[in-house]
Design a binder for these strands. Structure first.
Length: 259
DNA sequence: ATGACAATCAGAGATTGA
């Protein structure tokens, strides 16, 4: 089972690029972020015609997450538990019915800038809720993962210019600590389980030719429960997607599971 | 110190992103 996470930065703007990518790279499951669309306006039928089941959790203009799957989905739920007043669409879950069922959670973690401020407070509060959901996933002792745009640069080696991000919400010590708290519950971060060293990024700014200079950051991650980590056979970043026509500023990050 | 780039909604330019 091949699963990719991809922040598409707008379904309307990425319609062609996403279609080409699905047809050529053919993920079994795609976890998408920033669809920037309400559910009613999402071109669901088009992607169903490509062979995918489409589940969305959208809102107007901003945020929004989706799951596309070639395999059957069960028990789809929307929204991160823990705050009924939170109206931002950043979380969707489903169980993928492969040879072995896998619970997948697609997430779009808040950016949090500027620091300090209400947006940063929201980011840290959201991460507390994420930790609570993460603990429940671990307690189930089943193959499960949380993947998406974490808006977290875990370590300095995950940025081409770490000093430029020192005070940013993506790399602030409090942000990194909250991320580590979740990891240290017992999750495996798939990319670092398979690859070491600097120079591996999943986002490059549109400005100043950042992609051509590989001036990027690694902020899109797969966190696996032990039962999912036991099934992990590969993880890679499909960087060249960022260099194509009318790209998103993110590129897909993949895992392969023996499931 | 600022803007550079892109997307959205709206129908200009503010807001958001990272």
């Amino acid at each position: 089972m091949k699963i990719a996470t991809f922040n598409i930065n707008g379904i309307k703007a990425r319609f062609e690029a996403l279609t080409d990518w699905l047809q050529n790279s053919a993920p079994d499951v795609a976890l998408l972020q920033e669809i920037k669309s309400v559910d009613e306006n999402f071109p669901r039928e088009h992607f169903e015609d490509l062979g995918y089941i489409v589940e969305t959790h959208g809102q107007k203009s901003f945020n929004g997450v989706a799951i596309m799957s070639k395999l059957p989905l069960e028990d789809v739920t929307r929204g991160l538990p823990g705050d009924d007043a939170d109206e931002q669409a950043r979380w969707i879950e489903a169980t993928v019915m492969g040879e072995k069922p896998v619970r997948v959670c697609g997430l779009y973690l808040p950016n949090g800038n500027p620091v300090p401020g209400p947006k940063y407070d929201y980011k840290l509060a959201w991460m507390k809720r994420l930790k609570t959901r993460a603990e429940a996933l671990l307690a189930a002792e089943e193959p499960a993962l949380m993947a998406g745009d974490y808006n977290i640069i875990p370590q300095d080696e995950d940025a081409a210019r770490p000093d430029a991000w020192r005070t940013d919400a993506l790399a602030r010590p409090e942000s990194r600590a909250a991320y580590r708290e979740i990891l240290n519950l017992g999750f495996t971060e798939a990319f670092r389980a398979r690859h070491q060293g600097a120079g591996h990024y999943s986002f490059w700014d549109y400005q100043r030719g950042a992609y051509d200079r590989n001036d990027g950051i690694r902020i899109d991650h797969h966190l696996l429960t032990p039962q999912a980590a036991d099934l992990l056979t590969d993880c890679w970043i499909e960087a060249d997607v960022r260099g194509r026509e009318k790209p998103s500023d993110h590129t897909p990050v993949w895992i392969e599971l023996d499931a």
